[in-house]
């Protein structure tokens, strides 16, 4: 199928992108285009203006910044998964990103695009939650920073205003003592997650000192499994304790029912996959 016509502007800076967005009531930002272009082709969106940020240097690349790594929003999934910085300091992100769609899509699609699109079945917002990431956003009034926990508002909805651009994502490093795992459940390899779980666990002396667990596709937005996290904190790093804690995984969620799964099945998947993700993050299996 064929997109409807639109005006097109290519910008070289985030500020120019913001300026361009302000010229239209109905503009869309084009990064890698792997979500946007299929939507345009199906004419599910017919924007008046496309602002192409794929050439903005300040939005591209991965750098170390003290106790964090900073990833430009326009960095491709492929560059994320193959980055030594990411593999060393955010292996959870490397692992989850490697499961996004397929190799061709990962060559074009971007980290920031996936975050800003905020699809509840996407793989990366959960990782941002586990990492307590911070989003750097450019807008008419300059830049602002928003914690991941405050960024995702609703289904396909974030705190980004119509005239704002996500510039970069700052991921505090998960240092020594942390283990992570991303557990994803799909019907076929290239499809979206039915449910997925991102887990990070810090062990101390055979018990779990700290745990962070984020759920994919268990609500209109990604969310942390708070009940599981608190049940794990201080628990023994044992299969039994993890399984017991994981029984709380569906608490506070509101999963949808669709072709692939009814809500009660999603809840069960959340419990099972949380157990597996945490166990692997804790180095148990």
């Amino acid at each position: 199928m064929i997109p409807a016509g639109f005006d097109y502007v290519r910008v070289n800076s985030a500020a120019d992108a913001v300026a361009a967005l302000q010229t239209s009531e109905d503009a869309k930002i084009l990064g890698g285009g792997q979500s946007l272009i299929p939507i345009l082709r199906l004419r599910l969106a017919t924007p008046e203006l496309i602002v192409d940020v794929s050439g903005v240097a300040e939005m591209n690349g991965i750098r170390e910044d003290g106790d964090a790594i900073v990833i430009g929003a326009g960095t491709t999934h492929h560059d994320v998964t193959t980055s030594d910085l990411v593999r060393t300091h955010a292996p959870l992100l490397a692992q989850a990103t490697a499961t996004v769609a397929d190799p061709q899509v990962r060559h074009r699609g971007t980290f920031g695009g996936a975050i800003a699109h905020a699809d509840p079945a996407g793989d990366l917002p959960g990782v941002a939650l586990v990492h307590n990431a911070t989003m750097t956003i450019a807008g008419p009034a300059g830049t602002r920073e928003v914690a991941a926990a405050d960024f995702f508002l609703d289904y396909l909805t974030t705190t980004l205003a119509e005239d704002e651009v996500l510039v970069s994502i700052r991921l505090p490093k998960l240092g020594a003592g942390w283990g992570t795992h991303y557990e994803k459940f799909t019907r076929v390899a290239q499809s979206w997650s039915i449910v997925a779980v991102a887990a990070a666990v810090r062990r101390e002396n055979g018990s779990i000192a700290e745990a962070r667990v984020a759920l994919t596709n268990m609500a209109p937005t990604h969310l942390r499994a708070a009940a599981v996290e608190s049940a794990l904190t201080g628990a023994a790093a044992s299969a039994e304790a993890i399984k017991a804690a994981s029984q709380a995984a569906a608490e506070g969620t509101s999963p949808t029912s669709d072709l692939n799964a009814q809500a009660d099945y999603r809840a069960e998947l959340a419990r099972v996959l949380t157990g597996r993700a945490v166990a692997k993050a804790a180095g148990l299996s």
């Binding site: 199906l42 019907r187 076929v188 390899a189 290239q190 499809s191 072709l259």
Partner: peptide, 16 residues
Amino acid sequence: LITGTLVDYLLPSAAD
């Protein structure tokens, strides 16, 4: 038809 594209009508890939 709610399985109107290859997103929802699942053909197996080599990995499946």
